[in-house]
């Protein structure tokens, strides 16, 4: 039997309720993504979030403005269930320096695919005669969510650099998916597959969502004599050769420099590499990453050439982390 062209599946009130639930998800997601930008070190992920905050804000805005057209107050967000709020709380909780993969997995592998599935399901059931205002919004958001998901996955796979990170991220995703299933999703009334459809990556369509991905720096433009001095200095640190280390510092900075290094000298440091190189007038700023069995230290050194020799004028330990933190 063919359905009557005016047959519908939701009342006006039910439509408004569903839209408040969508708005809750979009608004909360948008605020969390905005808050994460500063906490996320990787430029590609920062810019991805930066681009999508505005799209998600517009989604929340479209839903909020649709509400008064359905006899409901404008711009009201209301979650479907306590369990969905718990899901959002859990998703938001990954704010650590090394948790960008978890952050991106929560948004781009769990929440957005679920919303896409819910929106597509809703679109398939809206009445084409009297619900085009809702359909237009759904069509636009579906298109944008597909793009977001594809772009997010490109950046996420770029950031998954080791099997350990992959395992950790997968575990996190499954934990969120478990809670999503338990909550019944954005509407609390699961329809179809909560986990969302597979979204193929179309490189041209997602170009607007992506800045370039970080490329490993092949070789830093370090002056040759400075490079030799930096290498020697790193070796002195690894060997804990106090005499040689002292001699690497400019005389006026010796005491302060050795005090700065004191905590590092307690650990075994096995490898080192230059991870940053800057200029300040004639001085050079070198960032060295040192690794050992106990963990990693990143030091920032200001070098100047005096009397034909590069010496350290200032040293700062900018980050230390235990071995497990970054794996």
């Amino acid at each position: 039997m063919v359905a009557h062209p005016l047959a519908g599946h939701l009342s006006v009130e039910e439509s408004a309720e569903l839209i408040r639930q969508y708005r809750y998800a979009e608004e909360r997601m948008m605020r969390v993504m905005g808050g994460w930008i500063a906490l996320t070190p990787e430029l590609s992920a920062k810019l991805l979030l930066g681009r999508h905050v505005w799209d998600c804000a517009q989604h929340a805005d479209l839903w909020g403005k649709r509400l008064p057209e359905l006899r409901a107050p404008a711009h009201v967000s209301a979650p479907a269930s306590e369990a969905f709020v718990r899901l959002m709380d859990l998703l938001e909780s990954q704010e650590g320096f090394h948790q960008t993969p978890e952050r991106l997995a929560g948004i781009y592998e769990v929440l957005k695919p679920h919303l896409l599935a819910a929106y597509q399901d809703h679109l398939a059931h809206t009445n084409p005669v009297y619900e085009p205002p809702t359909r237009r919004i759904l069509e636009r958001i579906v298109e944008e969510e597909r793009r977001h998901i594809a772009a997010g996955r490109v950046v996420l796979s770029h950031l998954i650099t080791t099997p350990a990170v992959e395992a950790r991220t997968g575990e996190w995703r499954r934990r969120l998916e478990g809670l999503l299933l338990e909550s019944g999703g954005v509407s609390g009334k699961p329809t179809g597959d909560l986990r969302g459809p597979d979204v193929p990556v179309d490189p041209t369509a997602i170009a607007q969502d992506l800045a370039r991905l970080e490329r490993p720096v092949g070789r830093w433009p370090v002056p040759a004599e400075l490079e030799a001095s930096v290498e020697a200095h790193a070796l002195h640190l690894k060997r804990r050769d106090l005499q040689a280390l002292e001699d690497d510092f400019a005389p006026a900075y010796r005491q302060a420099g050795m005090a700065t290094y004191a905590p590092l000298l307690a650990f075994e440091l096995a490898t080192h590499r230059i991870v940053g190189l800057g200029k300040l007038g004639g001085h050079r700023l070198v960032k060295l990453r040192l690794e050992g069995p106990a963990g990693t230290a990143v030091v920032q050194l200001r070098w100047a050439e005096t009397d034909g020799r590069w010496r350290v004028l200032e040293a700062e330990v900018v980050r230390t982390e235990a071995a497990a933190a970054s794996s």
């Binding site: 969390v32 808050g35 994460w36 500063a38 906490l39 996320t40 070190p41 990787e42 430029l43 938001e92 704010e95 320096f97 970080e214 720096v217 991870v275 940053g276 800057g278 300040l280 700023l285 960032k287 990453r289 990143v298 920032q300 900018v318």
Partner: peptide, 20 residues
Amino acid sequence: MDRPIAYDKLAREDRFIRMR
């Protein structure tokens, strides 16, 4: 997340060199 976060939480890749 805290509202607001401490200013020293600003996250950067290692290639950035921060100074006062």
